[in-house]
């Protein structure tokens, strides 16, 4: 506050008077500061080739995220050996599990024992005869689209990993609300690669 004494204007309305004080200096500094900032911001983000759009920074984030997720394993194909291999890989099965939690639990239930979609923890399967059929159902859907096709929406690696996770659920035989559906099918093939981490890490235990 300045030490200058307040000077009244000659205004008076219903007993209300007004001082003739100037607007505080810091008010002007900050106000014009925001104006200059705004002009610079607009020029940089909408006129400068150096800047980037929201979409560009989003694409970058997506690319980095995919790298974070899949840099070690490269591109996976949904064949028998690959799906079986990841059933025993604790680290990557977690990705399958979180994909399942994000995409599948609304119909198959949080513990996969079925809800409006069938129980995935028992020995009965509706559209699956071999382990690779799991990936086909995920990719192409089933039951006239009640099970939606994911091939355009889900990363191919995630399709493999979620298939491995679903395969790993078998045999828990949790009681589901729908009862057994489909047929009993032969057990999954055993892991073929001896260098698999199966020996030093136990299979993913169910929550």
């Amino acid at each position: 506050m300045s030490t200058r004494p307040d000077v009244l204007t000659d205004h008076e309305y219903d007993g209300i008077q007004e001082y003739d004080n100037p607007t505080p200096g810091w008010w002007h500094w900050i106000f014009w500061g925001t104006v200059v900032f705004s002009a610079c911001y607009f020029v940089f983000f909408h006129m400068s080739p150096e800047s980037w759009t929201v979409e560009e920074s989003y694409e970058l984030a997506v690319a980095r995220n995919l790298e974070q997720q899949f840099s070690e394993i490269g591109d996976l194909t949904p064949d028998e050996a690959t799906i079986v291999r990841f059933m025993d890989d604790e680290k990557w099965l977690k990705v399958g599990k979180s994909t399942f939690a994000a995409e599948c639990v609304t119909c198959h239930g949080a513990d996969a024992s079925g809800l409006v979609g069938p129980n995935l923890t028992d020995e009965h399967f509706k559209n699956v005869k071999t382990i690779t059929d799991i990936a086909s159902v995920v990719m192409n859907g089933a039951a006239n689209g009640a099970m939606p096709a994911q091939k355009n929406r889900m990363h191919p690696n995630k399709i493999v990993l979620v298939s491995s996770y679903v395969a790993s659920l078998r045999g828990q035989n949790l009681p589901g609300p729908r009862g057994a559906e489909g047929e009993v099918i032969p057990p999954w093939p055993a892991a073929t690669e001896t260098e698999s981490s199966a020996t030093d890490t136990p299979n993913e235990q169910q929550p």
Binding site: D6, T9, I16, E18, Y19, D20, N21, P22, T23, W27
Partner: peptide, 8 residues
């Protein structure tokens, strides 16, 4: 009185 007419 009001602090500042000009600020108003």
């Amino acid at each position: 009185p009001i602090f500042s007419y000009r600020l108003s």
